[in-house]
Design a protein around this nucleic acid. Structure first.
Length: 205
DNA sequence: CGGCTGATGATCT
DNA sequence: GATCATCAGCCGG
């Protein structure tokens, strides 16, 4: 019923910048794919946040625990946790094995499986499918069972190369944190309607 | 549009 | 027992 997208090329680990902020910026425009028995869900990554090593707002800051262990894996692994008892949040671990850091995926522009995403989200509004990290995980069918998987190797949930070149990339402070609140570590595709956050934040370069 | 608030559970101290 | 990298719904301007 729709024109299929060109085959999406998988990203390899060596393509992923090790540096957390560089990875967050690199992932803008890349694709997140979830291949499920019922079909494919995919979207363009349009908003990310970096939580670099030693950042007091990062989940790895207190040191290695059972919950945050995936953040200490090498770059390209998934760190999924339950926030506020209600929403799953998906991160891509960054840096090297043993270093706790990652990139939070905050919003997607839906590409494939839009009807299925709508069912998972319980809404028909395209713009509300994956705008915000909790919505993103719900739309993409990501939950705790995906914690720790290798997004450069997994058959089901993986990262793909961009299907379309990203437009100008903006940068702002991060959303929803109470420590290190002034660091400009949030990245987004400017003027993309699927980006979350206030108009004020999204006007930043 | 901006601001507030309750819901809800895994994890850690 | 406290703490959340959130969301939806509701309110007022």
């Amino acid at each position: 019923m729709h024109t299929p997208l060109p085959r999406i090329r998988r990203l390899t680990r060596r393509e992923l910048p090790a540096d957390t902020a560089a990875l967050a910026r690199f992932l803008i425009g890349a694709t997140l794919v979830h291949d499920l028995p019922d079909g494919r869900l995919s979207g363009r990554i349009v908003e990310t946040e970096a939580y670099p090593p030693g950042d007091a707002s990062g989940h790895a800051f207190p040191g290695l625990t059972r919950r945050n262990r995936s953040l200490f894996l090498t770059r390209g692994h998934a760190y999924v946790y339950l926030g506020y008892g209600l929403h799953y949040l998906l991160n891509v671990a960054s840096e090297y094995n043993g270093i706790g850091a990652g990139v939070l995926l905050r919003a997607l522009e839906p590409l494939e499986g839009i009807a299925a995403m709508g069912q998972r989200r319980g809404t028909l509004r395209l713009r509300d499918l994956a705008r915000g990290p909790g919505r993103l995980a719900q739309a993409m069918g990501v939950d705790l069972s995906d914690d720790g998987i290798d997004l450069t190797r997994d058959r089901s949930l993986w990262l793909g190369a961009p299907v379309r070149t990203a437009g100008p990339i903006g940068c702002s402070v991060r959303i929803g944190i109470t420590k290190e609140v002034d660091r400009p570590l949030r990245f987004f595709e400017r003027e993309n309607p699927f980006v979350s956050g206030s108009r004020h934040l999204n006007g930043q370069r």
